[in-house]
């Protein structure tokens, strides 16, 4: 109910918001889908990845390169982006899941860094740091121009709703409950006869693929593909959003993304050093509110919050 309410509210916002916030909210919804993907792995399975930018960028570049160099249409480009995200996340998961804890964090960080550097290395095709702007023709899906603000907002809303409802379904399904159990006590889950390694693998591939979907759609809607999206900063941001909103809650990632986006938006008017806010928020959150906003709500008001 609550989740359908949020989607309805976002749909209503489409008709009510002024243009500037309308555009911002479209962006926030795509980024929140990325955060939802991150939350699947971090919030529910308890695996802290520092390399999700790799998956986001796999979707972004899979789509962008397909449209730019292979001359694919928007639909095929999105498919290619999603497929490359699935392949990359399966590869990384197969290797990185052999480690755990701090080593897992560093391995994912290193893979993402290698991916980022690879994008820079092949600057001839990827245009490196500068990035490239998608041709207008490549951004038309089923006759809808995704670069127009109206359709862009609705497309972002569709993506966000799918990711939100998918997360909700996944968490309520037996599969999701096993993931939470792995987070809480892996030994016991293994003793009960579950293959924890396979569950982790599936969670990481699902999370990576969802991140790739967000990346591909982001590139499609905003028409820009650049190496910044593969940098460490874009691995840290979803962690920040999820921590702020509340890890292991379905609504948390959206709340966190919205809050952080406007915090940075407001502060960038005051100073160029807007990442300072991100740093302060990270330190403050780990010190004072490791549960995040929705985590606090769950603790204080509503224990059954999914």
């Amino acid at each position: 109910m609550l989740h359908l309410g949020l989607i309805a509210a976002l749909l209503a916002a489409h008709f009510l918001l002024p243009a500037y916030h309308h555009g911002n909210l479209a962006r926030v919804m795509v980024l929140a889908s990325y955060a939802l993907a991150y939350n699947l792995l971090f919030g529910y399975t308890g695996l802290l990845s520092l390399g999700h930018a790799l998956f986001f960028a796999a979707g972004l570049y899979g789509m962008g390169m397909g449209v730019q160099h292979l001359g694919l249409g928007a639909g095929a480009g999105l498919m290619l982006g999603i497929a490359s995200g699935a392949v990359v996340s399966a590869l990384v998961a197969a290797l990185a899941l052999r480690t755990s804890g701090v080593a897992f964090m560093i391995v994912t960080l290193m893979f993402a860094q290698a991916g980022f550097l690879t994008i820079l290395h092949f600057g001839e095709w990827t245009r490196g740091d500068e990035g490239f702007v998608l041709a207008q023709a490549g951004r038309v899906l089923w006759g809808m121009d995704l670069s127009a603000p109206g359709t862009r907002y609705l497309a972002a809303l569709v993506l966000f709703s799918i990711c939100l409802l998918l997360s909700l379904a996944l968490v309520r399904a037996p599969f999701g409950r096993v993931l939470v159990a792995i987070r809480e006590n892996e030994e016991r889950v293994r003793m009960l006869g579950y293959d924890t390694q396979a569950h982790r693998f599936a969670a990481m591939v699902a999370s990576g693929t969802m991140a790739a979907v967000a990346g591909a759609v982001y590139g499609m809607l905003f028409g820009y593909v650049g190496a910044t999206f593969a940098s460490v900063q874009y691995s840290i941001l979803p962690l920040l959003w999820v921590l702020l909103g509340g890890a292991g809650t379905v609504l948390g990632p959206f709340i966190g993304t919205l809050f952080m986006f406007y915090l940075i938006d407001l502060s960038s008017g005051l100073t160029t050093a807007y990442m300072l806010i991100a740093g302060v928020a990270l330190v403050g959150l780990t010190l004072f509110a490791p549960q995040g906003i929705m985590g606090e709500v769950r603790r204080r008001f509503w224990r059954g919050l999914p």
């Binding site: 921590l243 300072l276 740093g279 780990t286």
Partner: peptide, 11 residues
């Protein structure tokens, strides 16, 4: 690790 990432950005 999360806190030192925050410290990185602050510094």
């Amino acid at each position: 690790i999360v806190a030192t990432i925050g410290l990185l950005y602050i510094l």
